[in-house]
Design a protein around this nucleic acid. Structure first.
Lengths: 221, 221
DNA sequence: CAGCACTTTACGGTTTCCCATAAAAAAAGG
DNA sequence: CCTTTTTTTATGGGAAACCGTAAAGTGCTG
């Protein structure tokens, strides 16, 4: 049963609508944080006072506004919270739609649910909370589709290193030297070329610009 | 005095919070549209019934979801609405933060106010509505700052056409033919090269890959 | 219409990228 | 330890991109 919820969300309006959605689920014991640091603080205090939260609903991106913050965003917050209260359920509520990021939330951050800020988000929020209350993870169908789509090609660290360097403006011919300096092997120019060709071939691309655009869309770089 | 308001917003949660904000301003005669076409329709009907709206609060971007729509977004909606009811006040409520776009809304679309979905957006929404009720335009300070910031390069349609083609994998040398086929001029290869060089120079870039990555980050392509 | 300023296009040389092939190195297997 | 296989690196020719300059085109003005 979920009775005590913390909302971490910098947008006042989004915060309001989550609050209202919770009201409709008859969850009245709610707290609000407009900064990640404050959210972590509230969770820590609640644990100390032995009245810990059951659920954290958090955004991913918090806009800086002059007040110095230690935690830079939702991902940081999740990592920090896990250390304080490992059993806290976490539901991410964000406009994020890049498959790689959402996938990462499930696999690496082990969150309990993800609801994208989109057309029927309020309804989905209710469904998600109900699912999580029954100790199930919430995995909307269209999110699953997004993640599955991503599997057209899985980039290795080596791939992403090369593509990132290209996206930063490094000349292809200068990449081998950079790889050597960082102890990455293989480092030969031919190896770089070969790798890029294999990726582009697998994705049906012809030019590096296309590959960079694709990785940006995926949020891989 | 503003008494009758239409909210055009596809996100259910955002719609809810706007509604709640209006309630707090004791504006109870509100209607909701989750699609631009529906919004235009409601406005047209209201004009016909001689009970027209005083204010339209609209988002800029509406996500397609299968239902075919004529109007593709907030800008289209504003243009269409002006023809039906020129005196309707228009307040844009969007996460848009690109100075060029916001500037365009004021100068070309002649909107009455803009509130960015951000930290204190609900409070700003109230302020904006109060200002507009007194026939003033609402121009928050930080928005002005954004527009004044000139450290952002503003891409022309021509620029974006070229960059988009590159991002789609077209060879630079094949772009002139494509431009000619689409009646875009200039179309010479040298003009394309010159333009790309000017952009890259202005942004301190050296390679096309870098430029594509930057445009993807900006959401310009 | 001539003159001028400016834009667009055309062209040639250089660099970088692309691609195929071969040599060298490393890994695998007996 | 030697052979086989695979991976990595080196090399060279050709295509594309890059860069400067000259020519052609366009628009404005007197």
């Amino acid at each position: 049963m979920i009775t005590k919820v913390l909302i971490a969300e910098d947008h006042e309006s989004a915060n309001i609508s989550v609050q209202k959605t919770l009201e409709e689920l008859v969850i009245i014991n709610t707290a609000y944080a407009y900064y990640c640091d404050d959210a972590l603080n509230k969770i820590t205090q609640a644990v100390k006072a032995e009245s810990s939260f059951d659920l954290l609903i958090t955004d991913l991106y918090f806009e800086p506004d002059g007040y110095k913050q230690i935690l830079s965003g939702g991902m940081d917050l999740i990592t920090a919270v896990r250390k304080v209260q490992p059993d806290l359920k976490i539901l991410v509520f964000s406009a994020e739609n890049r498959p790689a990021t959402i996938d990462q939330l499930y696999s690496n951050y082990d969150i309990d649910g993800f609801v994208r800020k989109a057309r029927h988000d309020a309804r989905e929020l209710k469904e998600a909370i109900n699912e999580i209350a029954q100790h199930r993870r919430y995995f909307p169908r269209h999110i699953k589709q997004l993640i599955d789509k991503k599997n057209v090609y899985s980039f290795s660290d080596f791939d992403l290193t090369i593509i990132t360097l290209l996206a930063q403006g490094m000349l292809q011919k200068d990449i081998p030297a950079h790889l050597q300096n960082h102890g990455i092997k293989p480092s030969g120019l031919s190896s770089v070329e070969k790798r890029l060709n294999q990726i582009k071939d697998a994705l049906g691309f012809t030019k590096n610009e296309q590959l960079v655009a694709h990785c940006k869309d995926l949020g891989a770089i």
